[in-house]
Nucleic acid binder design. Structure first.
Length: 441
DNA sequence: CGTTATTAAGTCGAAC
DNA sequence: GTTCGACTCAATAACG
């Protein structure tokens, strides 16, 4: 029997409830083998992703819907993120076969341009920063700025004076996403920006316990509470989006922008430091010209060095000494070149391992990279420049050796990408596994 | 009440 | 080689 105003079906009530809590994101609603989008989300996704817009429900009360199968969702999510949208992933959190009535569903993570973990979605050479801006009140001229890349674990905070300084610093950081606590976004850029509540000082201080203790850093934060509150805003935002413990964030650094050369946005642009004025491409910029780095870590570091020119004479000379020594030793340089090219993006590998979403191949890549690092030592020994000498010391040979041996003992050389594919562990690593394999044969 | 049809994009196999 | 259709799943409308 037809009703004039039928109540929403149980599933639609569940959906609307979840959607109400994620207004600013496209909700990927898991329905069996598909992620579905409804209403405005469906219209948006159909338009942006070229999906067929269809409907669900009775003919008189059909609601717009479109969807993609779960195994293909990554690509579609990536495309939405690249277009600057946020995506909330809503999964079935119980087995539908065991569920009484409707299967329970929950948003298990929110993906935004600044909270990406997925290797496929972020370009290797660039950092993927989420930045937070805090301020004391609407007319305040002092700002807290913090930014972090959850895929590499880099996490920094600073205090800035004046809107010009703030804007220049944000352009330098080049975040993919910004959160701010003022009524208006002080950055005023086209970057995706979200307003959040400013964390209280007491609650902000609690995040320091997450990181290894560092009294000089804590002292700096005591004098710059806005920087600490910005760091807390970043931390909280990550936590809400990822719904994990954020173990991959292992360091938090307080820095002083005045220790680096001030570059206003016009100078940055005109110098074409990292991108050309026309077209904004890396090719043709100073960075594009100088970037002969062999690893993703090197590429990101070079970019940082170019954006943060040193002012301190001792530091500059120390860097020159290292560069000079490398420049003069053609043979050693060639050797390093050869070795470095076999090192994978260790920062992001470790990020995935710590976060618990690494695959077996990531572990093999880590092993191979650590092996290469160990064979760097004899080459580095030829140098005397302090910066290069420090590299030998920082390489904790024993720990690296142990990790290599463990991975090598446990995992075959070319494991499958999927954990479910099996055939990951070596014979002889685990007696029980060997036994089970024998039975299976 | 129970059974069947419907709904998305991709994958696989079968037919051409 | 390419095209067509069945099938994937959960929810529910529509039918018997």
């Amino acid at each position: 029997m037809r009703r004039e105003n039928p109540e929403a079906t149980p599933m639609m009530r569940q959906y609307l409830d979840i959607k109400a809590r994620h207004q600013d994101a496209v909700v990927f609603f898991r329905l069996g083998d598909f992620y579905e989008m409804f209403y405005a989300d469906a219209e948006l996704a159909a338009r942006e992703l070229e999906l067929t817009l269809t409907g669900r429900g009775s003919r008189e009360h059909k609601m717009p819907m479109c969807g993609v199968p779960y195994h293909a969702a990554d690509n579609y999510i990536a495309r939405l993120i690249n277009k600057g949208y946020k995506v909330a992933i809503c999964e079935q959190v119980e087995d539908p076969a065991l569920a009484k009535g409707l299967t329970k569903r929950e948003v298990i993570k929110v993906i935004t341009p600044g909270t990406l973990m997925d290797e496929k979605l972020i370009p290797g050479q660039a950092a993927n920063y989420l930045a937070a801006i805090t301020s004391a009140d609407t007319k305040a001229e002092t700002f807290g700025l913090a930014f972090a890349d959850i895929s590499t674990g880099v996490f920094k905070a600073a205090e800035l004076h004046g809107l010009d300084n703030l804007r220049a610093e944000i352009l330098r950081v080049d975040p993919k996403e910004i959160i701010y606590t003022a009524a208006e976004n002080p950055a005023g850029l086209e970057t995706l920006a979200t307003r959040v509540e400013q964390p209280g000082l007491a609650s902000a201080q609690k995040i320091l316990a997450h990181f290894p203790s560092d009294t000089s850093r804590d002292f700096a934060f005591e004098n710059s509470p806005l920087a600490l509150q910005a760091a807390a805003a970043v931390f909280n935002y990550f936590k809400a989006a990822q719904k994990t413990e954020l173990k991959q964030l292992t360091r938090l650094e307080f820095y002083l922008p005045q220790n680096y050369m001030y570059l206003d946005s016009a100078s940055r642009k005109n110098l074409e430091l990292t991108e050309t004025i026309r077209g904004g491409s890396k090719t043709g910029s100073l960075y594009g010209l100088l970037d002969k780095t062999r690893t993703s870590m090197g590429s990101r570091l070079l970019k940082e060095w170019l954006c943060y020119p040193l002012l301190d004479q001792t530091e500059i000379e120390s860097r020159y000494a290292a560069v000079g020594e490398l420049l003069n030793d053609l043979v050693a340089r060639a050797e390093l070149n050869e070795l470095l090219k076999d090192i994978y993006d260790i920062e992001r590998l470790i990020g995935r391992i710590t976060n618990g979403n690494a695959n077996a191949r990531d572990l093999v890549y880590l092993k191979e990279s650590l092996r290469v690092i160990q064979s760097l030592t004899p080459v580095l020994k030829q140098f005397s420049a302090p910066l290069l000498a420090a590299l030998q010391d920082s390489a904790r040979q024993k720990t690296m050796q142990e990790i290599c041996v463990l991975i090598d003992k446990a995992i075959i050389d070319e494991p499958p990408l999927l954990v479910t594919a099996g055939n990951i562990f070596r014979d002889g690593y685990n007696a029980e596994l060997d036994e089970l394999r024998k039975i299976n044969r």
